[in-house]
Design a binder for these strands. Structure first.
Length: 496
DNA sequence: AAAATA
DNA sequence: ATTTTGGG
DNA sequence: TGAAAC
């Protein structure tokens, strides 16, 4: 074995008559300290070489310590040398020369330590580096995946989303997340999965998810998914939560009362819908219908006109799914602010007032800013950012939409209702707000997880902190002028 | 449910 | 085997 | 005071 003596032996006193050798031993090559590895060399050869080297003025250490600069082994092919060295708890192995015997014999011949060359080095066998073909591995973090609008694996992702939603209704968060992650990974693939074997190197796919995929590949459907889809509770909760203002708690409450349809709910005299839910039912048809890109732009024009009456220095930026390139969405998201710092505080109030005057405001829930830069990062648990924001339902006239409205069959009206969200950060928080409102749910989640786990940083919609709570300020709009992928955006943020 | 950590 | 999973 | 809004 690689056995090193337990204790350093005291250096042998040089005999009389060897004075010249002795002087050289004390003075020469002090900065080169050799350790000879006994394995393959044998004890007797090791001690012979040790004596030889010392007689030529080399320093040879008996034990492997941090003082050693040159490790010499006869066993250059050995795959166990490096693991053994690593197990010796040296403070910095990277500064030690690990050499084969040729360096030693060259040095003996020259009578001095020869410079270390590549041919002398015993290289660490790196973890199978070129063997496993450098197939760019799919990251487990959604923020590191380049995901296009096309979904080549919808048959699987639809199934996973049904399972995830079911776990969500049953408040099993972990499994819900696992299926959402699996769906997200498959959405990022530029190819369609045709066999379970093809998912070999993909993250976030395990036993259960692969079993579901196998079923779908084999029979075209998953029986587990079908069971959920035919489940009355699941169907009812899905129906109820599809109403704006009705979340899982309210849906569950109604379900437990035995209610199964909207007319059941509306017929209850003791159910008092809040303002949000009233609007949700009133505009149900419109706001559950997809919003087109043209409609999103038309909404932008309306906001733009309203905001430019208030300030000439307004900044208006489309975010959400449309910014990611989607052709349809369930709502329209804009970030709106002004270059005059502090003036953004009342911007939304003014916009809402203007919309109301024009008769375009069907619903408004305004939330004033609670943002305080000096109190970051936030110490209370909060799902949302602290910027001023509003959740609106707007009346969108067909005449304002290029190419016309998305309308239901037999709809004779010249308008439709659209869900619109506006956020208004101070201008110096614009970039973080864009980052926070542009990503998909999974992207945003993994952005935060990645920052914390891989970079030891803390990211939210306001700022990026390192663990010592030093604030990173980001240079605003520039990175968003060219449409970058998610990955590009994040890389830039972390490098600022 | 899957991955990371203990 | 236990903990984490977005946001202390 | 939860629940919903992202």
């Amino acid at each position: 074995m690689f056995h090193a003596p337990a204790a350093p032996r005291p250096r042998k006193r040089s005999k009389p008559g060897e004075d010249s050798v002795s002087r050289r031993e004390e003075a020469t090559f002090q900065d080169v300290r050799i350790f000879l590895v006994e394995r393959k060399m044998g004890r007797s050869r090791r001690s012979f070489l040790t004596q030889l080297a010392r007689s030529k003025g080399f320093v040879v250490e008996d034990i492997l310590s941090d003082a050693v600069t040159h490790v010499v082994s006869e066993d250059s092919q050995s795959s166990s040398l490096w693991p053994w060295l690593k197990s010796r708890s040296l403070s910095d192995l990277s500064t030690v020369n690990v050499l084969d015997i040729s360096w030693f014999t060259d040095s003996m011949r020259e009578g001095r330590p020869v410079p270390v060359e590549t041919k002398h080095l015993i290289q660490d066998i790196l973890p199978e580096a070129p063997k496993a073909a450098p197939v760019n591995k799919v990251s487990q973090y959604a923020c590191q995946r380049r995901t296009t609008i096309e979904n080549n694996n919808r048959i699987f992702t639809d199934a996973f989303e049904v399972l995830a939603e079911n776990y969500e209704f049953n408040e099993i968060e972990g499994r819900c997340l696992a299926f959402r992650r699996a769906a997200s990974v498959l959405k990022s693939l530029p190819w369609a999965v045709r066999s379970v074997g093809a998912t070999q190197d993909l993250p976030c796919l395990g036993e259960h998810t692969k079993a579901v995929m196998k079923e779908i590949l084999q029979y075209g459907r998953s029986f587990e998914v079908e069971k959920i889809l035919s489940d009355e509770r699941c169907q009812t909760l899905k129906l109820f939560t599809s109403v704006f203002g009705v979340g899982p708690k309210t849906a569950e409450k109604w379900y437990r009362r035995g209610l199964r349809s909207f007319s059941d709910v509306l017929a209850q005299p003791d159910i008092h819908l809040n303002r949000m839910q009233q609007s949700g039912f009133l505009h149900y048809g419109d706001i559950s219908r997809a919003v087109s890109k043209a409609e999103a732009r038309a909404v932008g024009n309306i906001i733009d006109e309203a905001v430019h009456v208030i300030t000439p220095n307004a900044i208006l930026a489309l975010t959400g799914g449309f910014r990611r390139g989607k052709d349809f969405g369930h709502d329209v998201d804009y970030v709106v602010t002004t270059t005059e710092l502090g003036k953004e505080e009342n911007l939304l109030i003014s916009i809402i007032e203007s919309l109301k005057k024009q008769g375009l405001l069907l619903f408004s829930d305004y939330q004033a800013s609670t943002f305080d830069l000096s109190k970051l990062p936030s110490h209370r648990f909060e799902a949302m950012d602290h910027f001023a924001k509003c959740f609106l339902i707007l009346r969108l006239e067909g005449s304002r939409v290029e190419g016309g409205l998305q309308r239901a069959q037999g709809d004779g009206r010249g308008w439709r209702a659209v869900r619109v969200d506006l956020v208004s950060p101070p201008a110096d928080r614009f970039a973080f707000t864009m980052l926070g409102w542009t990503g998909s749910r999974m992207f945003e989640r993994d952005l935060r997880r990645f920052a914390r786990l891989e970079r030891r940083m803390l990211l939210d919609n306001h700022a990026l902190f390192d663990k010592t709570k030093v604030l990173f300020i980001l240079g605003c709009t520039k990175i968003f002028t060219h449409k970058g992928s998610h990955y590009t955006i994040f890389t830039l943020v972390l490098r600022v």
